[in-house]
Amino acid sequence: MPSAPIIEVAAHAGVCYGVERALSMAHEAAASAPAPVQTLGPLIHNPLVVRELGEAGVGLADTLDEAPAGSVIIRAHGVVPAVIDEARRRGLAVIDATCPYVKRVHKAAERLVDQGYQLIVVGESGHPEVEGIMGHADGRAHVVSTPDDLATLELERRVGVVVQTTQTQAALAAVVSALLTRVDEVRVVNTICSATQERQASAAALAGRADVMVVVGGKNSGNTRRLAEICSARCAATHHIEDASELDAAWFAGAVLIGVTAGASTPAAHIERAVARIRELTGGADDVR
């Protein structure tokens, strides 16, 4: 009888400081802030967590109009400054759970614009974090995700660059290299979060050794999707799941090493559930690293 596979969790996986902080603030608000307590947009990009928060008494409002009273929690991704001003004008109690590392991007964007640079934000257009960054740029910013996005832009002589915290170093380097051929000065503030870099590096290392990779986290989470892309490039049998119930025994047939990683918006309990389910599906793997 073949031995059960080894299950190894990446050295860096799951919730980062900013997400853990936001979750803690939300649970504290549910217990003590003026009711009703609602997040303005999903607190983090993880549908399971949003559902769990709802069960804990933290609702979800997509707009301020859906939160006419009580408290609003600003999501970890941040918002444009005008939204917080308007919430306070309406008499709502504002609990700002914006990740401190995202606030660092806001300050960098403001500083570069104040210094006269045209701002380039390397990130996903329409992403809540990017929208918040744009709100701190006084209308002098453009969002790009690849060098191709620069082709239609009328660039100024002096360009400043910030980057969405969950982007890859490769994406930033590619855009900066393209800018250097077109402008006189490029000033880069590398605002990629160290937690993102750690998760990407450890996922890549594990995927390079694994027979199967499981990436746990919200399918609407940019940083989790990037982990899945990184793993897929090194391990063809990569599967991105939100919940342990999605796991399929057929994925693990013949596997010797099963790797597990998770996005920065994935709580430890969700990783543990996935590992436990993999053990069940593979005949009780007992060598879990």
Rank of each mutant, 00 (worst) to 15 (best):
A4F: 03
P5M: 10
I6W: 01
E8A: 15
A10D: 12
A10K: 02
A11Q: 15
H12T: 01
G14C: 13
C16T: 00
G18K: 11
E20A: 15
R21S: 11
S24R: 15
A26F: 07
H27P: 02
A29D: 12
A31K: 13
V37C: 10
V37H: 10
V37S: 08
G41N: 03
H45W: 03
G54Y: 11
E55F: 01
T63E: 03
T63C: 05
D65A: 15
A69W: 05
G70T: 08
H77D: 12
P81Q: 04
P81E: 12
E86N: 01
E86C: 05
R89M: 04
R90M: 11
L92R: 04
L92Q: 07
A93E: 13
I95P: 04
I95N: 07
D96V: 06
A97F: 13
P100V: 06
R104C: 03
R104P: 00
L112R: 09
L119N: 06
I120P: 00
V121C: 06
E124W: 00
S125Y: 12
H127Q: 08
P128Q: 10
I133R: 05
D138N: 13
G139R: 08
A141R: 04
A141W: 01
H142K: 11
V143N: 02
S145F: 04
A151F: 00
L155T: 05
E156Y: 08
E156C: 06
V159H: 06
V159P: 06
T166W: 03
Q169Y: 09
A171E: 14
L172N: 10
A173E: 15
L179E: 10
L180E: 15
V183C: 07
D184P: 01
V189C: 05
C193N: 02
C193G: 02
S194Y: 11
A195I: 08
A210R: 09
D211H: 01
V212C: 13
M213S: 06
M213N: 09
N220T: 15
S221T: 06
R225H: 04
I230W: 08
C231T: 14
R234W: 05
T238S: 11
H240G: 04
D248L: 04
D248F: 04
V256Y: 11
I258M: 10
A268C: 00
I271G: 10
R273T: 15
R273W: 02
A276F: 00
R277C: 03
E280V: 13
T282N: 09
G283P: 01
G283Q: 11
G284K: 13
D287A: 13
V288W: 06
R289V: 15
